[in-house]
Design a protein around this nucleic acid. Structure first.
Length: 572
RNA sequence: GGGCCUGUAGCUCAAUGGUUAGAGCAGGGCGCUCAUAACGCCUUGGUUGGGGGUUCGAGUCCCUCCGGGCCUACCA
């Protein structure tokens, strides 16, 4: 029994996430967590909301609420939606937790003690009317290069030239529109990643089995230009973790907070501590997942994230861990995803384009979405959501192949032999061949799942479902029952047991449907079907079962057309 | 500008440099009647974006051109 630590990139607190966000980290992480648990591994699956930073403060201000209240509310909203999608986190924490405050301050202190923090005095744009320093992209003005009037302080979207906010002509705050800006001197802490560069490179180079998408991004940052740069880890904001040296004040840094990207990944650890707190456990309970000197040396740690998160997880966060000199667990495998596009363009949170988690659940149950998203996960390149494709996949895979199989088996069994598993006959050549075929396919499925090859796993699972229909067609119990009822009973006994096996195998993808199948079969035996010849006999003659409601309904052309229109515009 | 990814059947995707490039869906035909008009079997679709090169052999490696995408460090 392995010990598996899984973290999903933590979703930003600002607003409800869209399906692209979901499929890029939380959903595949959940798939993997469920698979590992199903096979008997000890799993710790952690996620949280990422709550700090300028956008959270601005969103709270827009909502007319104190940022603490706004984040608390949005955390509950996201927690509820995660539950709606059946995301099986052991804990869904908050980066604003006291646990994260203490850990982040601890890491900063240790890094400073190790000579890896330096103070830098720099010039930042301050908006007098907004009473805040503004990140470069919150300043707009006219591009000195091309004359575009909505150029951002970091880059002109029109001519793509990299800019400095002071380059802009007629700069103004995008928060208030105010032009009352000035450049102020401010002091910040920098993490000296340059010092750790060689150590990081050696570590990255040792990860030969990581996806190319992951390592190529890391290497680019390590080697591009002057190589890995030191990184500012503090900001002049109100909402964040106060800069402290461990539990001591940090002279000269009063009123400043840590940068969100410094504290966010530390929340993976803090979230596990929150989990322990929530269960009344002591520190040893979470430390055995994270401290190799306290029991975590046999833990394998997997991270899931979208490609935009890769630099922070391959470089910044490992720099924090390695630089601490303390025996914290580093990630063993990093699974990254490309983006999901929506009907010819990008999903966009800021522009409200696409289907959002709450909207998705309002029209169909989570299994429908889980199946489509996972079986089309953007692994090798960006993928595209279209309503036609969604309708086709759901109707064919879920309703026809799996749902109908469960339906035809249970209804035939009830009609001919009643609602208990029949005892007649015995397995012959056809059944033996099916068992062998299933054994090979399950092994294949396990291989893809263990390798986190999500699409391939989905395709194999579907193939496993199809095998059931093929068997029924060639065995034809509806014909056999007329001449040899005993043999037909054996076929149905096998077919009902097949449903149980399918429920277990499918649970990581479609947990609700699996639960419905198991409940109809009156079974709580979720033992992974390692040996098919045994698993196919788990439900013995005489065992009572029921015919479940149809597992999946079909999406009609009218619905598809309606949703296409409904979700074509911009969410307000 | 630089770096990386990507382009394969109408659609969504597969193929450690090695038989005749494969699946699912859609399309066509046949079968079955237990089932949500569901299922099964057979089948039509390809100059692997264009061009050049390396190799006994290229979808795969190299060069080049064309198209799509991501990143480029203060959004997160």
């Amino acid at each position: 029994m392995a010990r598996i630590l899984i973290t999903s990139a933590i979703p930003y607190i600002n607003g409800i996430k869209h399906l692209g966000n979901l499929v890029g980290s939380q959903l595949p992480a959940d798939l993997f967590a469920r698979f590992c648990r199903a096979r008997g591994d000890e799993v710790m699956f952690i996620c949280a909301t990422d709550e700090h930073g300028t956008p959270a403060e601005l969103a709270a201000a827009k909502a007319g609420k104190p940022v603490e209240d706004y984040c608390a509310e949005m955390h509950e909203v996201q927690k509820e939606l995660a539950a709606g999608f059946r995301l099986s986190f052991d804990h869904f924490g908050r980066s604003s937790s006291q646990r994260n405050h203490r850990l982040t301050q601890h890491f900063a202190g240790v890094l400073a003690d190790n000579g890896l923090i330096r103070e830098v005095s720099e010039k930042q744009v301050y908006s007098i009317d907004d009473k805040r320093f503004l990140p470069d992209r919150y300043i707009e003005g006219t591009c000195p290069n091309c004359g575009y009037t909505s150029a951002r302080g970091d880059q002109c979207d029109n001519c793509t030239k990299q800019l400095d906010p002071t380059d802009l002509i007629n700069p103004h705050s995008t928060v208030s529109g105010s032009t009352n800006l000035e450049v102020r001197e401010t002091k910040h802490l920098y993490l000296m990643q340059r010092t750790l560069r060689d150590k990081l490179e050696a570590w990255i180079d040792s990860k030969t089995d990581w996806p190319i998408l992951t390592t190529s991004i890391a290497k680019k940052w390590l080697n591009d230009g002057d190589g890995l740069q030191d990184r500012g880890i503090t900001r002049d904001l109100y909402w964040g973790i106060p800069v402290k040296h461990g539990d001591q004040p940090w002279p000269g840094m009063e009123g400043k907070v840590f940068y969100v990207w410094f504290d966010a990944p530390i929340e993976y650890i803090a979230g596990t501590a929150e989990w322990a707190d929530a269960h009344g456990l002591d520190n040893a309970a979470w430390e055995r997942w994270w401290r190799t000197d306290k029991g975590a040396s046999d833990v394998t740690y997997y991270q899931f994230m979208g490609k935009d998160n890769v630099p922070f997880h391959t470089l910044s966060f490992p720099a924090t861990i390695l630089g601490s000199g303390e025996p914290w667990k580093l990630v063993d495998y990093l699974k990254s995803f490309n983006y999901l596009n929506y009907d010819g363009g990008q999903f966009s949170t800021s522009r409200g384009r696409g289907v959002f988690m709450d909207q998705a659940l309002s029209i169909l149950p989570s299994d429908y979405w889980r199946w489509w998203l996972l079986s089309h996960a953007p692994e090798s390149s960006d993928a595209e959501f279209t309503w036609e494709n969604f309708q086709a996949s759901v109707n064919k895979d879920l309703a026809d192949v799996l749902g109908n199989l469960v339906s035809r088996v249970t209804k035939f069994a009830r009609a001919k032999f009643g609602e208990t598993i029949p005892s007649g006959g015995s397995f012959g050549a056809q059944e033996t061949a099916l068992i062998a075929d299933l054994g090979a396919r399950i092994k294949d499925y396990e291989g893809h799942m263990a390798a986190m090859e999500v699409r391939k796993a989905a395709a194999e699972l579907r193939g496993i479902w199809v095998v059931g229909n093929e068997y029924l067609q060639s065995a034809a119990p509806w014909t056999v029952v007329k001449t040899d009822p005993d043999q037909a009973q054996a076929m149905i006994r096998l077919a009902i047991n097949l449903i149980r096996i399918y429920a277990i195998l499918s649970e990581p993808f479609i947990p609700d449907a699996s639960a419905t199948m198991m409940s109809a079969l009156n079974s709580t035996d979720w033992t992974w079907p390692t040996t098919v010849s045994e698993a196919i006999r788990a439900l013995a003659p005489g065992h009572a079962f029921a015919v479940p409601e149809n597992l999946f309904r079909k999406i009609t052309d009218e619905e598809r057309a309606e949703w296409q229109v409904k979700f074509s515009g911009i969410r307000t």
